[in-house]
């Protein structure tokens, strides 16, 4: 799994630099997200703009991150979803669950405003 991590404006910014998020790398991402949350990350922004393919295992890893963040009162947001990836969220009705933003900058701006759930799709 190719992922970079940096801290920006109190948020942990993760750039997932893979074309696919599938059953081959989803467990690794899941474990990594849990590790960051256990280490005290209060806001995770996962940049998926390079991902053009997500399968059900990938969605499962993202759900794990979402649920673990909720358990710790941390914030978990996705940024930069490509159209086909967004369609996967809609197909599985998960677009109503995740906080998503068009870009990392939008996610950071939302974080600065302190409005955690203002961008969920209807």
């Amino acid at each position: 799994m190719n992922i970079t991590t940096e801290t920006k404006d109190d948020a942990t910014l993760l750039r997932f630099q893979e074309e696919r998020l599938d059953a081959h790398n989803s467990q690794e991402l899941k474990d990594y997200l849990v590790q960051l949350l256990e280490n005290g990350a209060k806001a995770l922004i996962l940049d998926l703009s390079e991902v053009r393919f997500v399968d059900s295992s990938g969605l499962g890893a993202l759900l794990s991150g979402y649920k673990n963040a909720g358990l710790r009162d941390s914030r978990f947001a996705l940024a930069g979803l490509q159209t086909r990836v967004q369609s996967m969220f809609e197909l599985t009705r998960l677009h109503k669950v995740f906080e998503t933003h068009p870009s990392v900058e939008d996610a950071l701006a939302s974080l600065a405003r302190g409005t955690p759930h203002d961008s969920k799709s209807d």
């Binding site: 399968d55 059900s56 969605l59 499962g60 979402y66 649920k67 599985t92 009705r93 109503k96 669950v97």
Partner: peptide, 19 residues
């Protein structure tokens, strides 16, 4: 059929194929 309210991490593969 996966219940979107339950947020299970598994069990969507065949559902996706069926769709």
């Amino acid at each position: 059929c996966p219940d979107p309210e339950e947020l299970c991490e598994r069990g969507r593969g065949i559902f996706i194929i069926r769709n």
